[in-house]
Design a protein around this nucleic acid. Structure first.
Lengths: 339, 339
DNA sequence: CTGTTAGCGCTTTCAT
DNA sequence: ATGAAAGCGCTAACAG
């Protein structure tokens, strides 16, 4: 392996052809005889030639870089997204530049600066920032290709790659009802956040199907953190008529609920059923293991990358793709205790 | 905000100076009068000029990209590293390209391909791949700047940025001894892995100070996963003379130990003390909260970036920097039960 | 099928 | 303190 990358000129010299011909081979363009093509390929192989990404970037006005911005506290989710982006992107010659948003209240400006600095060819927005209307509004109108993972606001001319969490939530709640639960509570994320609304709607759907309803005192809003789950569950479980089941809008808050239940000496699942969302590692590590919802994260990330790469500025490019989610039943749900 | 980035030529025209002068301002070089400089800066501000990273990359033979490769299952650790790299890198005009190693048994080749494809200016190796001698051997001799986070093999002419896990481990074990424990067990990662050896050595150190020793039957090797922790703890806790304390080489395995203890009806911390390593989120979510070791991840990442940026091919560039780690005492350790 | 010319937007070197 | 010219390694547009 030579230490210094040869340039296109050297390959051209070695092969006795012009740079343009080498370029055609690099880009798999036609207009080169099979003979010449294979000869050039062999030479490139031999000397370990790798075209300069910098030069191609400049000449093409493309960087072959894709930006992935995130502000999600669920690190395994973020890295799952990255894995999906990387697998699909690399196969198409792209690399992934990560950027975590540090200034929450100035996210749009930070993303814009990031995109201008990095020169990425496209941007993948991930939740929760992908669900922020103010950020989307500020970003729209900039010219780079852009897609959002999650997000349910149809007001924006911006692709959505999401999954059906409402139906997953309905499945979860239905199962609890089937088991005999009538006192079902819900711990959401922030009050008006998309995931909160969709997952709560799914619970309402299920209850409505059975002529049941969710009282105000059975709904609590956290912020997707363990601590908020702990607090909200503590409130719910110390009520006079405490719930026999809690549906949490993510696994972290479910873990917090476990802790409150432990503190209060309430056994899961015999005295309390709990469920989460995300199928993050914590779901398998809780005891008993948590019933939760697994979204096809890597598939969604791959789709996002493909949309960006094939982005066509001339077309409207508004593609809405919704995936279905799996409910992963584990051991955190059981019939309610007999009264 | 203009949609299209102006080029250096436009700025030069607007300011009535040459491109070279603009270039001098961009790079904070001297040779420009304060008047001209501030005028140019104002114009750049007004039109929202951002120098093309692609063009600079080509002209400088630098990409202003830093590669961060990882194969660590602890996602919060990886994102912590990224956060540290990003903060320091961005401040110096660099972006971070992430690459997760997919082919474990061919990691070196994959990293080499990644570096050649991406054209990154430098490479940050993170554990566990940064502790693999075969990978290091294959990577050494390639010409890009490179540093490793963790790693304790001094055979390689390659900077190390590590922390003192041996002393942290000693602190942990000493505290258990102080509490009265005499039956202390250890669950490590893979048998010969650096972290395993260092953390086990710390336990030996502490015991030796008190004239105690760690029997073979008190040492188990997992693979840093929850499941392996669960299994190994199960083995330890079902022994005739079961330990009253388990020191785990990471938090995941400690969480697994919690689960085994729960299965066996052994209460933590009254009947069993447990400790971990990493201070990952799971440590705070366990009940009772886990005593663990917090390493200065972001500081180490920042140091790595600075070393890469200031890497000097002429000097030997072998810098070994060791940080101290904090032991975070929480509620998972207590005196052993009276016999 | 193959080659020539002129850039991409910056930085370098060397003048002035 | 400032500028002119050449070039980084590749590709687009055109020519043959």
């Amino acid at each position: 392996v030579p230490k210094i990358n040869p340039t296109i000129n050297e390959i051209a010299r070695l092969a006795g052809v012009s740079k343009k011909t080498i370029s055609r081979v690099i880009n798999d363009e036609q207009g080169v005889s099979e003979d010449t093509r294979s000869r050039i390929k062999r030479i490139m192989e031999e000397v370990g030639y790798e075209p300069s990404r910098r030069a191609r970037a400049l000449a093409n006005s493309r960087s072959f870089l894709l930006g992935l911005v995130y502000n999600n506290a669920n690190s395994s989710y973020v890295l799952d997204l990255l894995a999906g982006c990387q697998a699909t992107g690399n196969a198409q010659g792209y690399e992934i530049v990560m950027h975590s948003i540090s200034e929450e209240d100035n996210a749009a400006q930070e993303i814009i600066r990031f995109m201008r600095r990095s020169g990425c060819d496209g941007l993948i927005l991930t939740p929760p920032v992908s669900e922020s209307t103010s950020v989307l509004a500020a970003l729209l109108g900039h010219q780079w290709p852009m897609v959002r993972i999650a997000g349910d606001n149809a007001d924006f001319q911006l692709s959505q790659i999401k999954y059906n969490d409402r139906t997953a939530s309905l499945t979860l709640a239905s199962e609890l009802i089937r088991l005999g639960h009538r006192q079902i509570a819900f711990i959401g994320g922030p009050n008006q956040a998309g995931p909160t609304l969709r997952r709560l709607a799914g619970v309402h759907d299920a209850l409505a199907l059975h002529g049941l309803a969710l009282g105000h005192q059975s709904i609590r809003y956290g912020d997707f953190t363990f601590e908020s789950g702990r607090e909200m569950a503590m409130e719910l479980l110390t009520q006079p008529n405490r719930p026999t089941a809690i549906i949490c809008a993510n696994d972290e808050m479910a873990a917090g609920s476990y802790q409150s239940a432990a503190t209060l000496g309430i056994a899961i699942p015999t005295e309390l059923s709990v469920s989460g969302f995300d199928d993050s590692p914590v779901a398998s590590h809780l005891w008993p293991q948590l019933t939760t919802v697994r979204q096809p994260v890597q598939d969604m990330a791959a789709e996002a990358v493909l949309q960006l790469i094939n982005f066509d500025h001339l077309k409207s490019n508004l593609i809405i793709k919704q995936y279905e989610a799996d409910v992963v039943f584990r051991n955190s749900m059981a019939p309610p205790p007999e009264i």
